[in-house]
């Protein structure tokens, strides 16, 4: 088993690895993890992301990612890419530069968009 410290934001084949990790292991990562199901409901949310956004797990889990949790990603740059990957049943692994609004402050990040056919898709957040 890979120790969380060794798992980096740009780790190859990360989606499959994240699927196997428990909540505890996700919390040990030093980048944000938001995992969501086919209905865009947030199912996984790690400590890093919770701290950055200032929101506790209970405010986020089981809510719609693109309308309740991260409306800033609800455009063709992010949400549409997941929708397209789902529609065409293809895997998605793209890293893009983005600006999040963590605690209403413009924050430059790299987002890694992952959909590999597992139960969850992921948005990973690496703060620059």
């Amino acid at each position: 088993m890979t120790a969380p410290d060794d798992i980096l934001f740009d780790h190859p084949g990360l989606a499959a690895l994240l699927d196997t990790m428990d909540d505890h292991a996700l919390d040990a990562l030093n980048f944000g993890v938001i995992g969501f199901d086919a209905h865009n409901l947030v199912r996984r949310y790690n400590r890093f992301e919770s701290h950055a956004a200032g929101l506790g797990m209970e405010r986020v889990l089981n809510h719609d990612l693109f309308t309740v949790v991260a409306p800033c990603m609800n455009n063709f740059l992010v949400a549409q890419r997941f929708a397209d990957a789902r529609q065409h049943a293809v895997a998605l692994d793209e890293t893009i530069d983005y600006v999040l609004t963590l605690r209403m402050r413009p924050t430059k990040v790299k987002l890694r968009l992952l959909a590999a056919g597992g139960p969850w898709s992921y948005v990973l957040v690496h703060r620059l």
Partner: peptide, 22 residues
Amino acid sequence: ILMLNPLSAQLLMPLSADGALN
């Protein structure tokens, strides 16, 4: 930009030529 909420980022990001929201 001093502060902004997510919906403004949703609307502005696709327009930003340099991918930043400064």
